[in-house]
Computed example of a mutant assay.
Amino acid sequence: MSHFSIAGLQLELSNQDNFSFIEQEITRVKNVFPWVDMIVLSELSTFGTSTTLAQPMPGPAEQRYCEIAAKNNLWLIPGSLFERADDQVYNTTPVINPQGEVVTRYRKMFPFYPYEKGVSAGDDFVVFDVPAVGRFGVSICYDQWFPEISRSLACMGAEVIICPTLTGTIDRELELSIARTNAVVSQSYFFNINVAGRLGNGRSIVVGPDGQVLHQAGTSSEIMPIEIDLNHVRRVRERGGLGLGQTLKSFRDSQLQFPAYQQDARQSAALQSLGPLKKFGEDAS
């Protein structure tokens, strides 16, 4: 089976406990679109942006999502939640299968510093297999600004990249172009699902492996059920985007050693001259 249906839920949410509303929306989507195989929510959609509501994983919020997935017989990627692990807090996305089992978790590699204070960075790339369909990868919001992540997921076999997002700022327009770029350079489907309402400005986007925009949402609540074809990914990777650039093959066959990825590259004079990572106008201390 190469066809698979994913519904992105761009919901109007507040910076509070949105769990009951989200559960109702998941149930409603499955009733209206019973052919949907997976539902994807936006980043931090459940409890908002406060780390004080962080929970361990496994934990009560994740378990409740497992029950929702099993009840509705679908794959569920509930955006992300703040995960408390010992003395650390991570921005974490659980991946839950239709049996209500957590098959993997992804911790955001690039928290939005200096704004996402008190959140530690993850260091593991995550892919998972949907049996008889294909391989999926996960990133979260600001991760998409670093093409190394999408390229790494593609090299691990990901044919679909799921990227829950929370953006309410003027740079959403830039993220739309970044989403298309990530899809093209990784030759994969790219689902970038944003929140609407008080937390975000919507404009979720779904892009195919050839850069075609399959859907771009408006700024209010919107349900985006989209059927994808994994054989299309495989054909694009074989023949090239629009029958032209065979990006992953060229990357595979290149003998280049990129200076930016050498061990001491981050200590270069050019990067060190940029100064500290801080909010503009605030004291570096």
Score class of each variant (00 low, 15 high):
142 Y>S: 14
109 M>Q: 15
78 P>Y: 11
176 L>F: 06
124 D>R: 15
186 S>D: 04
244 L>M: 13
71 K>W: 04
233 V>M: 09
131 P>R: 14
75 W>H: 02
234 R>S: 12
156 M>S: 05
282 E>Y: 13
134 G>S: 10
126 V>W: 11
243 G>N: 06
107 R>W: 02
230 L>N: 07
72 N>H: 15
187 Q>F: 06
158 A>P: 02
86 D>N: 09
50 S>G: 03
19 F>V: 03
221 S>F: 11
20 S>Y: 08
238 E>S: 12
233 V>N: 10
225 P>Q: 01
110 F>L: 10
87 D>M: 06
107 R>A: 02
130 V>M: 13
138 V>E: 10
66 C>K: 15
113 Y>D: 05
238 E>H: 15
96 I>F: 07
115 Y>P: 00
129 D>G: 04
163 C>E: 04
54 A>R: 04
236 V>F: 12
145 W>F: 12
224 M>F: 10
132 A>D: 15
213 V>F: 06
9 L>M: 13
185 V>M: 09
259 P>G: 02
33 F>E: 00
222 E>K: 13
81 L>F: 10
258 F>C: 06
267 Q>R: 10
136 F>I: 02
249 K>F: 14
78 P>A: 05
35 W>D: 08
249 K>Q: 13
219 T>Y: 11
172 R>T: 03
283 D>F: 12
219 T>V: 10
280 F>K: 08
190 F>C: 00
209 P>N: 04
269 A>S: 12
146 F>Y: 11
166 L>P: 00
88 Q>N: 08
77 I>P: 00
144 Q>T: 05
247 T>D: 02
59 G>L: 12
256 L>R: 07
209 P>K: 04
148 E>C: 04
193 I>Y: 01
274 L>M: 14
57 M>Y: 12
239 R>I: 07
156 M>H: 09
257 Q>S: 08
77 I>Q: 01
15 N>C: 08
183 A>Y: 00
125 F>E: 03
209 P>C: 06
196 A>Y: 10
4 F>R: 01
285 S>G: 12
260 A>Y: 12
143 D>I: 06
217 A>F: 09
88 Q>Y: 12
118 G>H: 12
232 H>M: 13
188 S>P: 02
263 Q>Y: 15
99 Q>N: 08
10 Q>M: 13
132 A>Q: 15
285 S>W: 14
73 N>D: 10
104 T>G: 01
240 G>R: 06
272 Q>C: 11
165 T>V: 11
28 R>P: 01
71 K>E: 13
200 G>F: 11
187 Q>P: 03
209 P>Q: 04
247 T>F: 15
203 R>H: 14
101 E>H: 09
227 E>S: 15
39 I>M: 02
17 D>V: 08
12 E>A: 14
185 V>G: 01
69 A>E: 10
151 R>E: 14
161 I>H: 04
221 S>T: 12
177 S>L: 14
223 I>W: 15
265 A>R: 09
279 K>G: 07
125 F>D: 07
244 L>P: 00
86 D>K: 10
79 G>P: 02
207 V>K: 01
143 D>P: 09
19 F>E: 08
257 Q>R: 08
8 G>D: 09
264 D>P: 01
193 I>F: 01
8 G>A: 11
53 L>V: 03
127 V>M: 07
87 D>R: 05
238 E>M: 13
226 I>T: 07
117 K>L: 07
167 T>D: 14
226 I>A: 04
20 S>C: 03
11 L>T: 05
116 E>S: 07
44 L>H: 05
184 V>S: 01
147 P>W: 15
7 A>R: 00
